[in-house]
Amino acid sequence: MMMFLVYVAFTPEFNDTVSNVKIGILASIGVFCVFGMLQFRDSLLIRPHPALWRVVLSFGVVYQLFLVFLLFQNKQDARMLFKYIDPVLGVPLPEKSYGDACDLTRENIMDQVFDVFALAHTVGWFCKALILRDYTFCWILSVMFEVMEYSLAHQLNNFNECWWDHWILDVLVCNWLGIYLGIKTCEYFEMKQYSWQGFADIPTFKGKMRRTMAQFTPKSWTKFEWNSTKNFKTYATVIFILTMFLICELDAFYLKSLLWLPPAHPVNIVRIFSYFMFGIPGVREIYQYLHDANCKRIGPQAWLLISSIATELLIVFKFGNGEFPNPAPKSVVNFWIVFLTLLTAYPIYQFYLIPKLQERNIKKKLQ
């Protein structure tokens, strides 16, 4: 790293101030990530190398600091800030609704099937399945996101889709395919036999190459069994994780709309990929805390993941003030009242009333 800085010091600088600032910021981020790679503590993941996950943690800190900085700006300045990153940004996005042509014609179906978001749905749910490692968990999340789209269609036109786009193309085709492939990948790693020989102990060149490629696969695999109805702690944790995943998904759409970021722009792609990298160790640390009695605290990757999602939500609330004047439909409000009531009533019944009744019945039998 220092040799790189020496090279920069003795190399003529650019005459363009904007280029110098951009390169200087990127270099500063790189230096911080190198420091984090050397000094931050390891996560639970060690493949392909613990240093990679320390770099992920370092970049997560940088992203969180950027979000805090963005939170202190006003909406217009925040939009113009991205113009320094890319001059094409900082202009209003064209409105697009997916619910205008809902007739089941070949043209309408092909238009949705070959949309770039169909592939994004599949790849995204494949990645979520690798993070959550639970078929039921992913299906609940998939259905709930479509419910969120129905609930927030009065604010964002992107959520206004045809019924068959919601439930057939998204849930039953794209999401299912991604979840299925992701869970099958998890099952492969779960059933795989792991044998880690040292390079010196492998006699053949082919074996050494195979061992080199295996370095980029997990050293071992932990099957996630969330057991959401086991006790109140696991129930509350699962609900919390589902909520954070939904908020993270919604943040992407709201930030894109409020900050005028086109869906296919590299800024959005970097954010999505970053959250995938944050989510792998973050959810793993939450699961460890939930199921390991010897684990007394949640790991730093999990805390940072929660903090980043929450800060994005605060940015959405601040910049969204006055942007969405349309009130929620009465049917949406009634649905959420019933849904949240049931969500609250279930743990009271399951974890309080039933144990009380069982305890009373035991006392009666003893008497």
Rank of each mutant, 00 (worst) to 15 (best):
E312C: 13
I286G: 01
Y289M: 06
R297K: 14
L290W: 06
I309Q: 02
P300I: 12
L314A: 14
Y287C: 00
L314C: 12
H291I: 01
G299Q: 10
A293T: 09
H291G: 02
Q288W: 07
S308E: 15
W303F: 11
I286Q: 00
L304T: 14
L304E: 09
L313E: 12
F319N: 06
Y287T: 08
T311D: 03
A293N: 07
N294R: 10
N294T: 11
T311E: 08
Y289I: 01
L305E: 12
L290N: 05
G299H: 04
F317A: 13
H291S: 04
N294M: 03
I309E: 03
Q288C: 09
A310D: 06
I315R: 07
T311F: 04
S307Q: 14
L313N: 13
L314W: 09
S308W: 02
A293W: 01
A302D: 02
A310R: 02
F317K: 14
H291R: 12
I286M: 12
T311W: 05
N294E: 05
Q288G: 13
F317M: 13
I306V: 15
P300S: 14
Y289N: 07
C295K: 15
I306L: 15
E285C: 02
A293K: 14
F317P: 04
H291C: 02
V316S: 04
T311G: 00
Y287Q: 04
H291D: 03
I298L: 08
A302R: 06
P300K: 15
S308H: 08
T311M: 15
